[in-house]
Design a protein around this nucleic acid. Structure first.
Lengths: 180, 180
DNA sequence: GACTTTATATATCGAACTGATACTATACAT
DNA sequence: ATGTATAGTATCAGTTCGATATATAAAGTC
């Protein structure tokens, strides 16, 4: 499951340009599977080359041409094959946690700043999910609702954990730990 | 904060070879910041080139030579500068969630298999954290305890969410949703 | 005794991905 | 006037991922 596969999946919902797919990556998939133009355009080119999508160029006045992609039968087949993976991965890459692992090399003030920014980031993402969800005009498929709820649950757990454990880095707590 | 920086941080705890660092990445950092030989060896080479670490080759009989790396003053300085980032990122890349977003293209059996594997994976990771934590002979720094607790909290939240929401994909629920 | 796995240790390589940048053109604010 | 947002394409250097190669010894298994 790479960017190509996710693009294929998005195209089952109708035709789209690279620009359109980028917006979908930012909104629906931003919290769980990010991708930018640097991945999307090469993915579409590669999918077109192997016959998984077809491409129609639409001229526009003033703006650059739109390249509208459509999934083919071969593309559908390949998508279903890749969705058949019984154990898809779930990976975290956290500069935040890597930083916290070295908290003893930082000042207490630096650590608290990092913790504050993490809570702020979680709040922003929660708000983003709420706004995105309330913007549905029609019912979203169960899968999408599931992923949004998942994101919300993880962000709440993150906030709770940080708030309940940040005292570990209070200056007086550090004194106690060193004294032990 | 990239693999280079994390390697520098690990080297504040004493000298180590690439092989040693790989083990640390697998154990302490596996759940939040993964890296393999393909990142570690180039990182060490690059750190040696810019004078952030020094390298001593130790001959061994039978086994290949050990290249033992030590952090330099310049390396310490650079590490502190990189730890100063007030808003380090926390990113998720989830083939699992990307798959679930397309659950409507899969059979109910396939979806349940994927959910089962996610719960199994969470359980394995929880067990791993427990074993790793109980293996501490001396007290780990607060930062490391924080990251392990964080991982545990997120894994519990993940399990709970999946267990409480998997009914969304029961065949009878799908009937209801379609009928609405 | 033969075979396989695990541990020790190095390193590379292609494919994929990230984040930034470049180019063009409207439109709407400040 | 100048900045920012929207619409649209695309590339590129640097990083990272995952697999693979090479070599030896110890330990477990059939």
């Amino acid at each position: 499951m790479d960017v190509k596969t996710v693009c294929l999946g998005m195209l089952t919902d109708g035709t789209a340009s690279g620009y359109d797919l980028n917006k979908t990556f930012e909104s629906s998939f931003g919290h769980c599977f990010a991708a930018g133009y640097g991945s999307i355009y090469p993915a579409l080119a590669s999918l077109a080359e192997c016959g998984c999508v077809s491409c129609e160029e639409i001229q526009q006045d003033g703006k650059p041409d739109r390249k509208v992609y459509r999934i083919t039968d071969k593309g559908r087949e390949q998508l279903l094959a890749e969705l058949d993976n019984p154990a898809p991965s779930h990976k975290v890459r956290s500069e935040f946690l890597a930083t916290m692992a070295f908290a003893h090399l930082m000042t207490p003030a630096q650590v608290q700043t990092v913790l504050n920014s993490r809570i702020r980031d979680a709040d922003e993402n929660l708000q983003f999910i709420d706004e995105f969800e309330s913007g549905f005009d029609h019912d979203a498929p169960a899968g999408v609702r599931f992923t949004l709820g998942f994101g919300r649950a993880m962000l709440h757990a993150m906030k709770d954990y940080v708030e309940e454990n940040r005292h570990m880095f209070d200056s007086d707590e550090i004194q106690k730990t060193v004294a032990r």
